[in-house]
């Protein structure tokens, strides 16, 4: 299973759906709720996201080398090999 990292917002419904989908499929993942960050750490993470998604929209999902923006179940499943 490829490594999974997601950038999310704590208040975002699509982000919660993404986490629920990964949990339901027993996928281990790291996540960062960007809206809960402060100061330098927040700026650093915002730069990270902009590198791969200039629109700075959420969820931004990294599965191995695949980047998916938004809760797109079919693309996520395919990237995970489910």
């Amino acid at each position: 299973m490829p490594p999974v990292k997601i950038y999310t917002l704590s208040t975002c419904g699509h982000c919660k759906s993404t986490k629920r989908f990964l949990d339901d499929n027993d996928v281990r993942y790291d996540f960062v709720d960007v809206d809960l960050l402060q100061g330098e750490e927040r700026e650093k993470v915002i730069d990270e996201v902009k590198q791969i998604n200039s629109r700075l929209s959420f969820p931004t999902i990294i599965i191995g080398d695949t980047i998916i923006v938004g809760f797109k179940e079919d693309q996520i499943s395919e990237a995970l090999g489910l």
């Binding site: 917002l9 704590s10 208040t11 419904g13 699509h14 982000c15 919660k16 960007v34 809206d35 959420f58």
Partner: peptide, 23 residues
Amino acid sequence: DLLEGLLQNRQRYGYACCPCRLA
């Protein structure tokens, strides 16, 4: 969940901005 997010944003920013966008 989204309405809760709106109220959280109103609480922390003073205005209810979109729960799915970074304010």
